[in-house]
Nucleic acid binder design. Structure first.
Length: 618
RNA sequence: GCACCCAUAGCUCAGCUGGAUAGAGCGUUGCCCUCCGAAGGCAAAGGUCGCACGUUCGAAUCGUGCUGGGUGCGCCA
């Protein structure tokens, strides 16, 4: 739905409904199309705790009207503390005017009556440690198998419309490594939010309105002259890259020699539009190579001339947030050519910024900030409940003013979260990888994808929090060892598939329907139940990651899950009873059901990261 | 000078928006393949969570002030 003027370029109005998560693997190996029931054991148990607390209130054991929102049911750090722990007694002790242990003991007695609870023990300052009956864990395996890779999906987004703007690379050349991380984080975050119940729009803002696209036009024009047999003059400040040579040839094909003797004023606009379109084609291909898909491409240039910028600024003016004034020079570091200048300013300080920001240059034209304001206003008016921008860390100084603008223009209704992506340092076999921008030998996105593949690139880019610098070693990311998380997780999945293959060869039915109907009560070993407990954390992890806009958590979770699986696998060396394949087919099916459930979660997680699971290591 | 980000084991990094004895990989040391893939696993050693106050039942996490590193700071986006 493109609200208002069809602003998007080239406006693929998102009218058709999209599936909840579109990057599910194409192969049938991961299963899928299950229900998305509430299958979060932690929220389920929290509901139970709350219900018992309310019963205590009704019985007069707790005062009425207590705020229960701080009551949490979480996995304890130490497995010795049980399966789940609640802080209810400690949180409520003060407002209830009672001793934490007294509340905890009362609550423990009540919870013990629930068929799901094996034990409830008061511990420490007032924690209540819960152990669940094995049947609860066994039931979860069955539920995962019948649900498939939508296990863990959630409704916490409540269908809220969120716009994720990312990449937004200048359309002046191919994407380079600096863009890759932002692209991957934005894409994975979009997948994550969709999985957690948000209505996500992925958007690219094309910076085609500034001076840099004029430079692009002049650079392309030289290549056009070159295509016509003339010597190109790639002056200082123009883009020297070879990628413009085909653009020059295409210009020759379109215009022949007709532009050669014309002044810039004649050809600039046409050549600029032509070259920009070509660059965007190239960027789309780059994104596709990385497996990144956008819903909407928005053009900065399209904002000019439509009155959108003026309208946005006028809206701010109506709030008394625009005025003519003179900025103070930055203290302690006055630029050499500083002179007081009256400019049109946005009173961003009224919305949390440190100084007011200019929206017009001294010659009366807009600064880059003005169309950005209009663009974000456009997003607000398109009805998004929430905006997310993914910027490079060097744009950190831009965050406050952008938030101020959105705050003002949405009347505080629409939160804007800006994720700053720290830089990626390239290495080759442990040695820093030198790039020279001047010589045009910068590493492109294509270079990276061709060298190590999109899956590896994507996973590695998500192995750090967005605001931490990331080392990317072309050799190490391909290493097949456990210090390479990509391999480690893939290997876990490969082992699971290996078990399924072996079982099939032995004539054991291992399709999901059969496995989910297996006698899962045979899964009773603590090591097996521990792996199930890890699988139980998946829905919770999704919610935490989605709420914080932190897709990297998925990658770390998958690593932990893989570690648990490898651990259980190897215990089979010493304890044959823990091997997945047993003599008794019924026992095999129960154990394979667990392995398969782990595989389903790995697949679901990898799908969010946009990484293809492999069935076999090569 | 100001703003934002970072500081956790020798190294590289997680740490659930305030929970219990702070975790993982690498590296070091010692173990485990007639066995579903050892491309793996187990165990040990390794910590003043940069420093100092504060908030409270409780702080790596929140607040304030420092120290050290990164990014940015009016007519580039």
């Amino acid at each position: 739905m493109c609200a208002g003027s069809c602003f998007a370029f080239p406006c693929p109005c998102r009218s058709q409904a999209r599936p909840n998560l579109t990057r599910l693997p194409a192969s049938g190996m991961c299963g899928g199309n299950g229900r998305t029931d509430e299958m979060n054991l932690f929220t389920e148990l929290r509901s139970l705790v709350i219900a018992e607390l309310e019963a205590m209130t009704a019985a007069g054991a707790l005062p009425a009207g207590l705020d229960m929102s701080a009551v949490a049911v979480e996995p304890p750090r130490d497995p010795a503390h049980g399966d789940m722990a609640t802080n209810a007694a400690m949180v409520l002790a003060k407002p209830a005017g009672k001793q934490p242990r007294a509340i905890a003991e009362d609550l423990a007695a009540r919870l013990s009556g629930d068929p799901r609870i094996a034990s409830a023990e008061v511990a420490g300052p007032g924690f209540l440690n819960l152990r669940l009956q094995p049947v609860v864990w066994q039931g979860l395996v069955k539920a995962i198998l019948t649900t498939g890779t939508s296990y863990g999906s959630s409704a916490i987004g409540m269908g809220h419309k969120v716009n994720v703007e990312f990449v937004s690379a200048n359309p002046t050349g191919p994407m380079h490594v600096g863009h890759v991380r932002g692209a991957v984080v934005g894409d994975a975050l979009s997948n994550l939010l969709a999985f957690a119940g948000w209505d996500v729009t992925r958007e690219y803002y094309i910076n085609d309105g500034g001076a840099q696209v004029d430079v692009l036009a002049r650079s392309a024009f030289e290549r056009y002259r070159e295509a016509n047999g003339l010597e190109p003059e790639i002056r200082e400040g123009l883009y020297p890259g070879d990628y413009l040579i085909p653009v020059g040839e295409a210009l020759k094909e379109k215009y022949g020699t007709s532009l050669l003797d014309q002044p810039e004023s004649v050809w600039l606009t046409d050549v600029r539009d032509f070259a920009t379109a070509r660059m965007m084609e190239m960027i789309r291909e780059d994104l596709a190579a990385l497996g990144v898909r956008m819903d909407v491409y928005s053009s900065e240039k399209a904002l000019y001339g439509t009155g959108e910028i003026e309208a946005a600024i006028d809206t701010l003016r109506g709030m008394d947030l625009i005025y003519e004034g003179v900025l103070e020079p930055p203290k302690g570091k006055t630029p050499e050519d500083w002179e007081p200048r009256e400019q049109t300013l946005f009173r961003s300080t009224a919305h949390g910024d440190d100084v007011d920001r200019p929206v017009k240059k001294s010659d009366g034209s807009w600064t880059y900030f003005a169309p950005d304001i209009a663009y974000h206003y456009n997003k607000v008016r398109r009805g998004f409940d929430q905006l997310i921008d993914i910027f490079g860390a060097d744009h950190g100084g831009y965050v406050k003013r952008m938030k101020a603008a959105v705050s003002a223009l949405s009347g505080g209704r629409v939160p804007l979260d800006i994720k700053l992506i720290q830089l990626v340092k390239l290495y080759k076999n442990g040695e820093p990888f030198k790039m020279s921008k001047r010589a045009g030998t910068f590493v492109t996105l294509r270079d990276v994808v061709e060298e190590v593949g999109a899956d590896v690139t994507r996973f590695v880019m998500l192995t750090r929090k967005n605001d931490m610098a990331l080392d990317f070693d072309f050799d190490k990311v391909l290493e097949q060892s456990k210090d390479n998380p990509v391999f480690y997780v893939q290997y876990a999945n490969a082992r699971i598939n290996s078990v399924l293959r072996k079982a099939r060869e032995a004539g054991v039915a291992v399709d999901d329907a059969t496995l989910s109907a297996a006698n899962l009560a045979l899964l009773a070993h603590p090591a097996e139940l521990a792996l199930i407990a890890k699988l139980a954390e998946w829905p919770r992890l999704v919610e935490i990651a989605a709420r914080g806009n932190e897709p990297h958590r998925v990658a770390f979770y998958l690593y932990e899950l893989a570690s648990d699986l490898h651990g259980l696998w190897n215990r089979g060396n010493d304890e044959p009873g823990l091997r997945f394949i047993q003599d008794d087919p019924a026992v095999s099916q129960a154990k394979i059901a667990l392995a398969r459930a782990a595989g389903v979660v790995i697949c679901a997680g990898l799908a969010i990261l946009g990484v293809t699971p492999v069935e076999e290591m090569r």
